[in-house]
Design a protein around this nucleic acid. Sequence first.
DNA 1: GAGCAAGGAAACAGATCTGTTTCCCCATGG
DNA 2: CCATGGGGAAACAGATCTGTTTCCTTGCTC
Lengths: 196, 196
Amino acid sequence: MTRASDLPAASRRDHLIQTAGRLFARDGFHATGIDKIILEAGVSKKTLYSHFRSKEELILAVLRVHDSAFRNHFMRNVEKNGRDARSRLTGLFDAAENWFEEPGFYGCIFINAVGEYAQASPPIRSACQDFKNMMRAFILKLCREAGADEPEALADELALLFEGATVTAQVSGSSHAARTAKRAAQALISEHFSPA
Amino acid sequence: MTRASDLPAASRRDHLIQTAGRLFARDGFHATGIDKIILEAGVSKKTLYSHFRSKEELILAVLRVHDSAFRNHFMRNVEKNGRDARSRLTGLFDAAENWFEEPGFYGCIFINAVGEYAQASPPIRSACQDFKNMMRAFILKLCREAGADEPEALADELALLFEGATVTAQVSGSSHAARTAKRAAQALISEHFSPA
DNA sequence: GAGCAAGGAAACAGATCTGTTTCCCCATGG
DNA sequence: CCATGGGGAAACAGATCTGTTTCCTTGCTC
């Protein structure tokens, strides 16, 4: 068990964000009360509110941290396992499969956040849009590096497959959608390269 | 304004489901209190609880009604606008575009429900899985009627595109994803037919 | 007109929510 | 040894949540 009281303030902040993120992902945002978060994190309410002005600010911090952490982890995974640029494109969906099979996978936290806060909190909605834009930019970079004919069009299509696989994995509770997406991606990719 | 008090009991039930569904879709499930629902529906709390044992039961009723209503509406739209069986496959995404452009579009209510209740309420999760299975079955039927080579595989792929477009439209607030999905679908479909 | 049933309005109960404040402990530095 | 300050525990405030109950009005039927 992590002893939060032994940590310096900066780490305690990270620890809170980590804990809150896990609970938000698993149970949802409204369903996760502040009391549950501080209990799980082993921290007092006073400490939480010394780091975050409100629950909304904590949610935003969770989303920001998760944004960069997930993208780092995911991009590294894709870049490492793909030999050439083109195989990295299908590698997107191998990385997705790994993600879906992680024990703490409850779908994309940004999509869930939009479902709960799209109308109530524009900043939260913006954070989610930012994430999707960054992911799309990463896919686009891969498409360019692979030399696709219309990289923008291909990136949009692959991003759709990725979203679809994520949601389907969340609802079904199975990672099988990743394989379907990969198969579809292969077909789409081969259409976006001039005949060698 | 609909005068709820003038309606027979059966219609009042429908009216409550309709109203609750609109609020759930727009603001989320936890964020929509019973008080807001009865205020908007013009009905007393006593009446609501005479029709539904609990909020969860109301949510389940909303999901069940929305399931059949949406599928009816959507299937009719697809069947009507597609001349031949194959054009009905791409027509899926024309219907999606229409859906995304409706004023009250806030994404797929089932996906949002899973985000909020996957862990807390197995019945709600089941209702969402049922919906996704029915949609997949409809797409599969279209694939078979069109004479696709591997209808199951194609149906899975098109369903992924459909999910991806829905989520992307929700997060971005634009219906553009429907066109991207249609373009990708055309490529996938052409691969699933033996060369004429 | 009398009786009856449905439903609205609103009080109520009890839990839970976010966020603030108080009090106390304890470690650290002079 | 003492002062200071960070943080835990918990009370507190005030709002809001689900769900129940009470009381009253209204309209329908006999």
